[in-house]
Design a protein around this nucleic acid. Structure first.
Lengths: 248, 248
DNA sequence: CGTGCATTTGAGCGGGGTCAAGATTGGTGG
DNA sequence: CCACCAATCTTGACCCCGCTCAAATGCACG
């Protein structure tokens, strides 16, 4: 399950929420001075809730805001004309969704909640205005976006050079480090996404993902029952993932 | 060959260069008002020349600037610990290199000239300062970076879902549209990169690339002799590339 | 407790990788 | 200007990883 953040109803105008949010060191506020945080908070619409499978936005939605995951998790995907889905990323609490759309009239991808998920919204017009006034925040935006570009490159590398086992090991390690960053267990967690999502993301067939999971299990690298995963031998997994640098 | 831009020695302090540059509608100046262009020009170091194979920067270089290709072409790649190369992009005149590094102390990748290439340099500290003052320019930066993220997603999609033929058709069409954008022939051009670069970029073996080229040739889709390529049936190529949206 | 979806497991096949020769090309020096 | 060599590109033969098809099992939720 996701980090147990207390969620406040948007009806109650809670002011100090970014201050209190345990994710502020991951999310946008990171770059902002304590006394400037209020200005960021002014533009944020906090804590909207989405249920599993609900769209946060899709390719036909006019682009208007970026979103920070507060609790739960999100997947983004491109739907091709022929109806195929290509998942472009999984987003965990503290991570920003929608950066790939800042060039478009509409969103460049579709975002769905993978589970019950709380989302903070940053309207872009306000955000751009603010980053113009706050160099630190602007720098942080560049930072996040370039990070996103690198994640893409890392993924491309994984897809073009690595075997099924290597890809899955790399994904497990990536998730692990992202859980750890939130002070949660990096060795025992619940996958927010289905096997088919993993398969789609990593360019594999579902069957292959399943087979690799059982193979890892038989080798004593992990213990998996459904979405519940325990990493038993992280070193060995890193050995399997080889040069595919863990994306964090 | 690349677009025949007259190159001026940096020794002569040529002021109006961005004004005169035929690529200014692709590059950064795009977003800038005529009367503000001077401020951008002040920070740009123009027209440095690199020979084929020369490094523009690599992963150990401290990150200090982004680069615009003025003539020629550039490839960027990640070199893994094990020494393998993964090409992350090809950059043509008017395109900006280094956006993926805006989060790092050092560059996130290595950039090399594929041929004799002229480069304009934008120091980041100056650039960030300027974008803070010029909302249009800031917006344009966000635009370019999000475009880059999308290119990554597009590539990931190509790598995970498409066959060798589809990948190569997509690349040819992408190059074609990028030549066209520069008012050059989109149907008859010279590939700036070697077969092995194409293979690496698309996650294929060199042999496969070669085989697909000859297959396309036999089918009358293209005429290729070495790096010289002629697209004979663009519609058919688009059909082959299917849903793999051409990245432009 | 049954229905539908997610996951697992098995059997067989094919796209593209690997290995190994040739064929071209281009750069260099005589 | 041409001969030579190295690098690039092409072509062929063979094989393996991961996809496809098919079916069984498990699990969640009404």
């Amino acid at each position: 399950m996701a980090q147990p953040i207390r969620l406040h109803r948007t009806s109650s105008p809670l002011k100090a929420s970014c201050h209190q949010c345990s994710l502020s060191n991951l999310c946008l506020p990171l770059a902002v001075e304590e006394n400037e945080l209020d200005r960021l908070e002014d533009i944020v619409q906090q804590g909207r809730i989405f249920n599993r499978g609900e769209h946060i936005f899709d390719q036909s939605t006019p682009f208007r805001a970026c979103f920070a995951v507060r609790s739960g998790s999100v997947k983004t995907s491109i739907i091709t004309e022929s109806g195929e889905e290509q998942i472009t990323g999984f987003f965990m609490p503290g991570e920003l969704v929608g950066l790939d759309s800042m060039s478009h009239e509409t969103y460049a991808c579709t975002a769905r909640a993978l589970e019950r998920t709380s989302i903070c919204e940053f309207p872009v017009d306000k955000l751009e205005e603010l980053t113009g006034k706050m160099p630190e925040l602007q720098h942080h935006m560049y930072h996040l976006m370039s990070q996103e570009i690198q994640n893409g490159h890392q993924l491309a590398m994984l897809l073009s050079k690595n075997t099924a086992e290597e890809r899955i090991a790399a994904l497990l390690l990536s998730l692990s480090s992202r859980f750890e960053r939130r002070r949660m267990s990096g060795t025992h967690f619940s996958l927010p996404m289905a096997r088919s999502d993993i398969a789609n993301f990593l360019g594999l067939a579902v069957e292959t993902v399943s087979r690799v999971f059982t193979r890892f299990q038989n080798q004593g690298l992990i213990k998996a029952r459904g979405r519940d995963v325990e990493l038993l031998d992280v070193d060995a997994l890193q050995l399997v993932a080889r040069d595919s640098t863990r994306q964090d």
